[in-house]
């Protein structure tokens, strides 16, 4: 029995492509990006960036990382092979959440808190190519590559704007809870989840007709929201209750509450749906959750003010 287990494990290792994964953590107060090796569950590098980094997005095809700096009106580009800065893109306004187009089309979408807009960047020319009007103070933003849709949470309009990823077209503006913050799309594109900080809810919206399917009760002040790559679990980080709530996506029922650090902010998963990483803004840590046992297995110390709004784990 033991022998067979060992054999199958080694076969598995040979069969699986070992793409090394990393978590990229923006520390807003320390103005640093910390790179965490997912295999070792430990820090491997740190990159100094401009003041106040917040939003994160990865271009896995081109090995590039994009980081927003709301205070500076710029986006930093980093080469993830060398962890060296490639340059800065001037957006103006207050660039907040960011999402690379995963289709390979060379465009990056950024919510602009101050100008009530989504700014579209061409990273090749480092220029703003379009500015699309959305609701008041857009915060979280997500892209569904297959359906070519952009979802934007308008913090002070209590709505979600649905935009086209290729043409300046708006499909819908959907009512959410009070003060929507983060937004994520399920891996199959069928559902959009939006956290609302002020009424402690998660709005579940259909990706087909943009109708509200259900409103889930969250802990106090839910911020980050994410779905496991296997589409089984929905994770919500609650700043007021210092925990993560886990919902089963099939029944939309809560199945666990996991205590993490203080004032958790953002959640991302490893590709194999085995681990969740959570940034804890107040206590300056990164919690590693084992998804199977629903327990925190490690806390990694981070520079001051870890946030990493967006999907922060990639190659």
């Amino acid at each position: 029995m033991k022998l067979r287990l060992g054999l199958s494990l080694s076969l598995l290792l040979v069969a699986m492509p070992l793409a090394a994964q990393h978590a990229y953590i923006s520390s807003q107060a320390a103005s640093k990006i910390t790179v965490v090796d997912i295999d070792k569950q430990d820090i491997m590098a740190a990159v100094d960036v401009a003041t106040g980094p917040v939003g994160i997005s990865l271009d896995n095809q081109r090995n590039q990382l994009f980081v927003t700096h709301p205070e500076m009106g710029v986006v930093t580009m980093i080469d993830t092979k060398t962890n060296k800065k490639l340059g800065e893109i001037r957006t103006g306004g207050q660039p907040f959440a960011i999402a690379v187009d995963p289709s390979g089309k060379h465009q990056v979408f950024v919510s602009d808190w101050e100008r009530n807009a989504v700014v579209v960047i061409n990273p090749e020319t480092k220029l703003v190519v379009d500015i699309l009007s959305v609701g008041k103070n857009p915060a979280g933003l997500a892209i569904d590559s297959k359906s070519r849709r952009i979802y934007v949470a308008n913090r002070n309009s209590d709505t979600l704007t649905v935009l086209d990823a290729d043409t300046p077209r708006q499909y819908a503006e959907v009512k959410t809870g009070k003060a929507p913050y983060a937004v994520t799309v399920s891996p199959d594109g069928k559902r959009i989840y939006v956290t609302a900080i002020q009424d402690n809810t998660v709005t579940v919206i259909s990706g087909d007709d943009y109708k509200v399917i259900k409103t889930l009760e969250a802990g106090i002040a839910p911020y980050g929201v994410a779905v496991t790559p296997d589409n089984q679990w929905l994770y919500v980080a609650n700043q007021g209750t210092n925990d993560v709530w886990v919902f089963d996506t099939q029944h939309l029922q809560r199945v666990a509450k996991i205590d993490v650090g203080e004032m958790p902010e953002s959640i991302s998963f490893t590709d194999d749906s085995q681990y969740a990483y959570v940034t804890n803004w107040f206590s300056n840590t990164l919690s590693v959750i084992d998804i199977k046992s629903q327990k925190v297995i490690k806390q990694i110390a981070m520079p001051d003010g870890p946030r990493s709004l967006g999907r922060f784990i990639g190659d």
Partner: peptide
């Protein structure tokens, strides 16, 4: 942006 009740840059005290 004075009228906005919130912004993207939180501070902390402990």
């Amino acid at each position: 942006s004075l009228a906005f009740a919130h912004g993207p840059t939180p501070q902390k005290i402990d």
